[in-house]
């Protein structure tokens, strides 16, 4: 297991480095000049040139990239070209908002999705199963930004239960502001997870070891909660691990629609402004989060299923 984790961590470093280089190269390939945005339209060409030199933008791409990694090894992620603040302070001030949003979305959607999936499997063919199936597919089909807009209209504008924009302060304040965006992002995952868990549970309930457990006279409740559920949620855990990428994308919409701070909105603005240091910092951090999420989902799978554990 330890060797597996170390191997995956080494691989993760390579993945992060490749992702940063590739995405940064793509950004440099498209036209745009951050100095034009920083200095404004009235800057003289001489001043623009001097600023480009000061920012190192006159150097070849590979030198800029190597400089970034060199500085990174010293713990320096660079400086925001607009505010002069350190990239690390900006990215890490925004990251918790996005991670909280993603975590809240995963937790509520997984909890509900697993319950619906299991219940549908036990009541296979019943009207509850059929209704859950229709609802699941419906929520999967509706994009999260549509859910965000309807959530806003109904719960913020109509009922005024929740605020429309911002992130709030204090634990309960932030939780209050989190409800609508987490609902918007998580709702389609309820459907996904419910469908995956239902299919998985149906397969497990017909598996040899479950039939054996029944033959030994174990109660259905014990079979489900002690043996079947652990295995039935494995595909859902994998789905969530790989789905963190999609959740980051959905968070971008949610952060724009709900005017929330977060790394999604930060990276969109930084790309539009060609604010390379912020883009690099955001790519680095989000890639690390995504790689770690995949690793964690693999480890959780191994913890839940001894067969996977033995194979590592």
């Amino acid at each position: 297991m330890l060797i597996f984790v170390l191997r995956r961590l080494a691989l993760s470093v390579a993945i992060v480095a490749i992702a940063v280089v590739l995405l940064n190269a793509m950004l440099h390939l498209v036209p745009g000049d951050p100095t034009v945005m920083i200095l404004g339209p009235r800057a003289t060409p001489e001043l623009i040139e001097r600023t480009r030199e000061a920012m190192g933008l006159d150097r070849p791409f590979y030198i800029q990239t190597l400089t970034f990694f060199g500085n990174l090894l010293r713990g320096d992620m660079g400086v925001d070209v607009f505010t002069g603040r350190s990239v690390a302070s900006i990215v890490f001030s925004q990251l918790p908002y996005t991670l909280t949003l993603i975590a809240a979305s995963i937790v509520w959607s997984a909890a509900l999705g697993i319950v619906i999936g299991c219940y549908s499997a036990f009541r296979r063919g019943s009207w509850i199963d059929l209704s859950a199936g229709v609802l699941s597919v419906s929520t999967i089909s509706v994009p999260s930004f549509v859910m965000a807009l309807y959530g806003l209209l109904i719960f913020a504008v109509g009922l005024r239960w929740f605020p429309a924009v911002g992130a709030g302060t204090g634990f309960w304040g932030q939780a209050h502001y989190l409800v609508l965006p987490a609902f918007a992002i998580g709702i389609s995952w309820v459907g996904y997870i419910a469908r995956v868990v239902r299919a998985s549970m149906l397969e497990i309930l017909g598996a040899n070891h479950v039939r054996m457990a029944r033959a030994f006279g174990l109660t259905e409740r014990r079979i489900v909660f002690s043996y079947a559920l652990k295995i039935a949620v494995l595909p859902a855990v994998t789905l969530i691990g790989t789905g963190v990428v999609h959740l980051f994308s959905a968070a971008v919409f949610a952060e724009v629609i709900f005017s929330r701070p977060g790394i999604g909105a930060l990276i969109v603005n930084a790309v539009n402004e060609r604010n390379y240091p912020i883009v690099l910092g955001c790519i680095l951090v989000t890639t690390i989060v995504i790689v770690l999420a995949t690793l964690v989902s693999d480890l959780v799978n191994a913890w839940l299923d001894p067969r996977i554990r033995e194979a590592l």
């Binding site: 806003l152 913020a156 504008v157 005024r160 429309a164 924009v165 911002g166 709900f258």
Partner: peptide, 12 residues
């Protein structure tokens, strides 16, 4: 549009 909804929701 978000600003309009924020106004209607009483946030601004």
């Amino acid at each position: 549009k978000s600003a309009e909804l924020a106004y209607e929701a009483g946030d601004v």
